[in-house]
Simulated assay, not measured.
Amino acid sequence: MVHVLLDGKPVYSHIGDLILLRALTSVHLQSWNNMVMKTARFFKRLLTAGVTSTPDFMLRNIVRDTVHAWGVDRTGTFKPLVGSFKGTIKTMRKDADTVRMMAAGAAFHGGYSYGHDPGAGKLVVEKLIRKHGIDEDSILDTPKKLARFMKYGWDRWQDLGSSFENATRARLYEGVKAKGGTHLEAAYEAKDIMDYSMGGDWPAVRFLCETVPFFGARMTGLQRLGRGAYENPQGFLAKGAMVALASVLLYLNNRDREEFKELEHRDRDNYYHFFIGDQHFRMPKPFEIGGYLRDSAGTADRVRN
């Protein structure tokens, strides 16, 4: 039995689903805050932020994210590439929909770095509070203020990275609202496309999510992929078949090229390769959806050899 207050009076409900009860009671779950965990989280954030702040990662990430979002989208409002491009423009402009989405908690500022770390989330909130205040020390007349100015440039760079991260979510939010959905429904769909704040209920998994870079992101991606296939099997299979067909055709086109044969398996597994004349172009494969195709392409390649 659980209860909530409605107009100051308790309203009781009986929950027969144990998993649902655990999910509800885990909403306010407190993370471990001892010195060991704080140290582990710090080094995890340090490595993750270093990786995700590079320009090449940002560009690869939005390409992978757009195919992943299209594959698991159950609203039918997101279009790959075009949706991400429009979403990037929206988040850079900080339009009304983007602000509402962020206020609802559906956006992620450094989702890879902060998604499973409440302490780091607190730092982000404090930074935003300071950001919107009036700073009398904005004149660069001391080394300390100069260092603060350089940090300001870093923060702007991070904002650019967040624009790429939130591009698909902003477009999904707008699409659900355009179809008549409420703000809450649109925010939920935008957040649920890849919820980095999820950390699981089992203590061992929560520990790994908080301390191992990208572990939580991959677990979340696999869980979301499975739900996407379960909730909309026809749409998921149709979109997956389109990606698979395009991947197979590209492989058949490339398999006899000497340039393709000389590539390392790691390179083949993580990128689509296009050869136009003497030019070689790579496009990052999507996250979990691309993982299945990597295994299939690798097996076909080994059998052929």
Rank of each mutant, 00 (worst) to 15 (best):
A217N: 09
T220N: 00
A170W: 00
A167R: 09
D65M: 02
L6T: 13
R282P: 10
F164L: 15
A69E: 00
M58R: 12
S13L: 10
G121D: 01
P286D: 06
K131D: 13
F149P: 05
D95C: 15
A106E: 09
G121T: 04
W32D: 14
D192E: 11
G240C: 07
P203T: 05
T211M: 02
C209A: 09
T98R: 11
L245K: 10
N61V: 14
Y12G: 09
F42A: 14
G153L: 15
G16H: 05
V303L: 15
E288S: 04
A190D: 00
G71A: 12
N232M: 14
M58G: 04
M242W: 06
R304Y: 04
R169G: 07
H265E: 15
L225H: 10
W32P: 05
H273K: 07
D73H: 01
V303N: 05
L24Q: 09
D159M: 10
Q234R: 14
Q158A: 15
K177Y: 08
G105Q: 04
G181K: 04
L46I: 05
Q234V: 15
Y272L: 13
D97A: 06
K261F: 00
V124N: 10
A187L: 09
M37Y: 08
E262M: 14
V99D: 01
E288W: 01
N232F: 05
M194N: 05
T168K: 05
K94A: 08
Y251E: 03
I62G: 11
R60F: 01
M1T: 11
S84H: 13
W70D: 05
Q234M: 14
D195E: 11
G291M: 04
S113F: 02
Y114H: 15
L29P: 06
R22Y: 08
A120K: 08
A104C: 10
D192M: 11
Y12Q: 03
D73Q: 02
L46R: 00
V2Q: 08
N166R: 00
T39W: 03
N305H: 02
V63L: 14
T77L: 10
D256V: 05
W154F: 07
W202A: 12
W32Y: 03
Y230V: 13
T52D: 02
Y272D: 11
M219V: 15
A23C: 05
D141M: 04
G133W: 00
N254P: 11
P55H: 01
A204L: 11
T48N: 09
P286K: 02
L128K: 02
L6P: 01
V11W: 02
W157E: 00
D155G: 08
D201M: 14
G119V: 06
G71V: 14
G87E: 06
G87H: 03
E210F: 06
Q158E: 15
P55S: 04
D267H: 12
L123G: 03
T299W: 12
L250E: 01
F108A: 03
A229M: 13
T66G: 02
H116D: 00
L5H: 07
P10V: 09
S84E: 04
R169T: 01
V51A: 07
I62M: 12
D95T: 09
K145D: 14
